[in-house]
Design a protein around this nucleic acid. Sequence first.
DNA 1: GGCTTTAACGCCATTACCTCA
DNA 2: GCTGAGGTAATGGCGTTAAAG
Length: 234
Amino acid sequence: MMVEREDLGLSLSLSFPAEKSAASNPSPLPLNLMPSSSPSTFSIMQKTCWNQPFSSSDLSSETCRVETRSFLKGIDVNCLPAAAADVEEEAGVSSPNSTISSVSGKRSEREASGGSEEHDGERACSRGVSDEEDAENSRKKLRLSKDQSAILEESFKEHNTLNPKQKMALAKRLGLRPRQVEVWFQNRRARTKLKQTEVDCEFLKRCCENLTEENRRLQKEVQELRALKLSPQL
DNA sequence: GGCTTTAACGCCATTACCTCA
DNA sequence: GCTGAGGTAATGGCGTTAAAG
């Protein structure tokens, strides 16, 4: 038996010796090593706990990259601050119910120095900011509203990665910076994967238990057969 | 065609903040 | 009011990929 899954960027292959051994060594003993409830549970959980299966090598990623590059062609990367301001304003930067965290750090610096229009907008807020402002904004945590979360969830159900245009549109719709949308999707994928891992662990645990039980049963049967063989009647 | 560089992206681990019991 | 736990937004590092030179 082979259960192959590639969900949520996490691929897991479960191979069970039962079928293999049954095929190569036709045993009269029925081997059912699958957790009794696991198939249904597994599939149900897959269907209910999260969205459609996806893989990290999903086409969307590639599409996204291609689109990104085509999207960015012709953009003057030297006009960072202006572009940043435009994007921020266009997106209505200030979240309805939140403060804005500072965007700083290596990546931000790197991308702000030569990034795209989009990334300028997302990350330029750390550039040209005074120390006082920087101190004020230092990693104030945003709390998304229920509506924002719902919309993000809805969007995530449709596609778990966003191309730049989708990201911009969503950010604009939510009144967030594109970077925040990007981060949300990143974290959302991580949460999804974590849940998937938990389910996988549970599944493997059940498999292990079943195998242990089956092994115990077979050992016992072997003992009985040996005893039978050595008995005087035979 | 093979190489190096660069940019963009995603994942992961971690941090930092917020909420709540 | 204080505190620890849990949730999650945000950050930094690193690997991968593709385009350009």
